[in-house]
Measured scan of single mutants.
Amino acid sequence: MSIQHFRVALIPFFAAFCLPVFAHPETLVKVKDAEDQLGARVGYIELDLNSGKILESFRPEERFPMMSTFKVLLCGAVLSRVDAGQEQLGRRIHYSQNDLVEYSPVTEKHLTDGMTVRELCSAAITMSDNTAANLLLTTIGGPKELTAFLHNMGDHVTRLDRWEPELNEAIPNDERDTTMPAAMATTLRKLLTGELLTLASRQQLIDWMEADKVAGPLLRSALPAGWFIADKSGAGERGSRGIIAALGPDGKPSRIVVIYTTGSQATMDERNRQIAEIGASLIKHW
Rank of each mutant, 00 (worst) to 15 (best):
Q4L: 09
R7C: 06
A16E: 05
C18K: 02
P20Y: 03
P25R: 08
T27D: 04
L28H: 12
A40R: 03
R41H: 15
G43K: 00
G52C: 04
G52D: 08
I54R: 09
F58S: 10
R59W: 04
F64K: 01
M67L: 09
F70D: 01
V72Q: 02
V72S: 06
C75L: 05
L79T: 02
L79W: 01
L79I: 05
V82N: 06
D83H: 04
A84D: 11
G85M: 08
G85N: 11
Q88I: 11
R91Y: 06
S96K: 11
D99K: 08
V101S: 10
P105N: 05
V106M: 12
V106L: 14
D113A: 12
M115S: 04
M115V: 07
S122Q: 14
I125W: 00
T126E: 12
M127W: 13
T131A: 10
L135E: 06
L136N: 01
L136P: 00
I140T: 07
G141F: 04
G142D: 06
K144H: 09
K144C: 12
E145S: 12
F149P: 01
L150Q: 05
L150T: 09
H151G: 13
H151D: 09
N152A: 14
G154P: 04
R159S: 08
D161F: 03
D161W: 03
E166G: 12
L167H: 03
N168P: 02
I171L: 15
T178N: 03
M180L: 09
A182P: 06
A183L: 07
M184S: 03
M184C: 06
M184T: 03
A185L: 02
A185G: 14
A185P: 00
K190E: 15
L192W: 08
T193L: 12
L196R: 15
L197Y: 05
T198G: 11
A200V: 11
I206Y: 15
I206R: 12
D207S: 15
W208A: 03
K213Y: 09
V214F: 05
G216E: 07
P224C: 05
P224Q: 06
A225Q: 15
D231F: 03
D231W: 03
S233Q: 01
G234Q: 01
E237Q: 14
R241T: 05
A245H: 00
A246Y: 12
K252T: 11
V257Y: 05
I259T: 03
I259W: 03
Y260G: 00
Y260W: 02
Y260A: 02
G263L: 06
T267V: 09
D269F: 12
E277V: 11
E277Y: 08
A280K: 15
A280T: 11
S281L: 12
L282R: 01
L282M: 14
I283W: 07
W286K: 02
W286V: 02
